[in-house]
Design a protein around this nucleic acid. Structure first.
Length: 492
RNA sequence: GGCCCCAUCGUCCAAUGGUAAGGACACCGGCCUUUCACGCCGGCAAUACGGGUUCGAUCCCCGUUGGGGUCACCA
């Protein structure tokens, strides 16, 4: 059987380095076996999925050098490759499960479910999920409710006892009691399938042989193998990769580490270096060499050689590796070409110029005024972040709320940024100036700078957000507790 | 909290049932050099703990501890 692997990102945010990590290993494994690598968009969450995010993910994967044999943009024999274009397929499979008694409609309201959950947590019940109230509704009762127009979801019937045994290529046998799993929703009230149903149906229909993805999915494997069983299908091989981590060992997150592929691009990393770096997370060349290309990786790679300790994403080492690529693989001419691709091109120079033009007394002033547009970080000090009559801790909160509001922005441009900052300053009952002042420090590393909103637009969201995050770090950061409190207060 | 996964220098990655536990990043010295960087030389630094199995365990088993993940009409 032909080896087929897939990457199944959900278009709900910035392209994540963890996605690239899984893509690399999936891609390489397909190539090792002369197989195919498939890209499938998992956009079953109508509220959070956006076209912009899908586009950004495809674009950043292309930038880093991952290619796919089949996908929403290139098509292929197993399409469509976007789950929202496959709804009728899921619907048919869900109907089949209901007909065979493996799934049932559930009419419980969200409010009831919340209550049930709350009660179960209070009781310290081992299973905190759904109490299966609708599981034993007679088909006729259910049909009547549906005919009456009641909204419902569809849940799968998890066995009430026994255990699920499955295999992971890296970890061997894994067991989990069925009693610890509740009746998972497989179709939402909006008629869309949930991830669990869609992933199983698609992986089967697309003839995926190896599921290579993050460790965070291990606990949902039982639901998936049960669905395979319900359908009478052979499950694929599971390979759960270790999770990339922050320096404090928690799962890699944007709050503690830049996670957007686009950040690394804008910060001046070379795609081959980033990809190489991801390749050495959990894997190594037989001779121990640390600098290697994807083709070299393909020549030597086996899934079985992956080590399981979750690696910390170490920016210092990535930087070092990147520096080797710059000086070992590039002539001055090539380097100069890359610099032009990166930022020294007419488009970017002209955008930057538009922001500083009125400030130039000589053309040579340009270099002085624009350094912040060609840097990763800027030199930030506590003094630069000071706001008159405001405590340091309050400034951090101000920056954090600003960051959240900026993250929600769909369009990154000066007017939008401006209105966000106005909104935040009103929220805190401050003059706009009291908010822009620390932001000048955070974004520009100086009190003397071109106009903030325009500068932020030109600089781009990835760099801006990272700079705000690191400015909060300069002020000492926010404890988890305070963060939660703040989140409750200001985050919609 | 229940369940699941994991455990070698601060970090990444090696090693064998018998090693002085090796390399890389970071850090600290030194050399090179008009400076810095690169390069070179050297240094610091790890088998979490407790039981077994064994002539011998970092390696195999069990427990403890620690870390992480997961418990949604999110993926």
């Amino acid at each position: 059987m032909k080896v087929r692997t897939r990457l199944a990102p959900s278009p709900t945010g910035d392209p994540h380095v963890g996605t690239a990590y899984q893509a690399l290993f999936g891609f390489v494994w397909a190539r090792v076996n002369g197989g195919d690598f498939v890209l499938r968009i998992e956009d079953t969450d109508q509220d959070r999925s956006t076209d912009a995010s899908e586009l950004a993910i495809l674009e950043s994967l292309r930038w880093i050098g991952i290619t796919w044999d089949e996908g929403p943009d290139v098509g292929g024999p197993f399409g469509p490759y976007r789950q929202s274009d496959r709804l009728s397929i899921y619907r048919n499979h869900i109907d089949q499960l209901i007909k065979n008694g493996h799934a049932y409609p559930c009419f419980c309201s969200k409010e009831r479910l919340d209550e049930v959950r709350k009660k179960l947590i209070e009781e310290k019940a081992p299973n905190r999920g759904y109490d299966r109230r609708c599981r034993d509704l007679s088909p006729r009762e259910a049909a009547e409710k549906i005919a009456a127009g009641e909204t419902y979801v569809v849940r799968m019937k998890i066995p009430l006892e026994g255990e699920c045994v499955f295999h992971d290529l890296l970890r061997g046998e894994i067991r989990k009691d069925w009693a610890s799993i509740d009746d998972q929703v497989i179709m939402k009230a909006d008629g869309f399938p949930t991830y669990h149903l869609a992933v199983v149906v698609d992986d089967h229909l697309m003839e995926i042989t190896h599921i290579i993805r993050g460790e965070e999915w291990i606990n949902s494997v039982p639901k998936h193998v049960l669905l395979y069983e319900f359908f009478g299908w052979e499950p694929p091989l599971y390979c759960h990769l270790p999770l990339l981590r922050n320096p404090d060992k928690s799962k890699l997150s944007k709050r503690k580490n830049p996670t957007s592929i686009n950040y690394y691009r804008k910060a001046g990393y070379l795609p081959e270096a980033l990809l190489n770096y991801l390749g050495m997370m959990g894997w190594h060349m037989p001779d121990g060499s640390e600098k290697f290309s994807v083709p070299e990786m393909i020549k030597n790679f086996s899934l079985k050689d992956i080590s399981l300790g979750s690696p910390v994403f170490d920016r210092a080492k990535l930087r070092w590796l990147n520096s080797r690529y710059i000086r070992e693989d590039n002539s001055v001419a090539e380097l100069s070409e890359k610099l032009q691709e990166w930022a020294l091109n007419p488009e970017y120079i002209s955008r930057v110029s538009s922001v500083v033009a009125s400030r130039l007394e000589t053309l040579s002033d340009w270099g002085y005024f624009t350094a912040m547009f060609f840097s990763d970080s800027v030199p930030v000090t506590e003094e630069l972040l000071e706001v008159k009559d405001m405590e340091k801790s309050h400034v951090i909160e101000l920056l954090q709320v600003t960051l959240w509001k900026l993250e929600e922005l769909r369009e990154w441009n000066s007017p939008a940024i401006s209105s966000v900052l106005k909104e935040v300053s009103e929220l805190f009952e401050l003059k706009l100036k009291d908010l822009t002042s620390p932001l000048y420090g955070a974004i520009c590393g100086s009190k003397v700078a071109p106009p903030l909103f325009d500068s932020m637009e030109v600089l781009g969201s990835d760099l801006c957000r990272t700079r705000i995050t690191s400015a909060m770090g300069v002020l000492g950061g926010l404890s988890g507790k305070k963060l939660k409190k703040l989140e409750k207060k200001y985050r919609a």
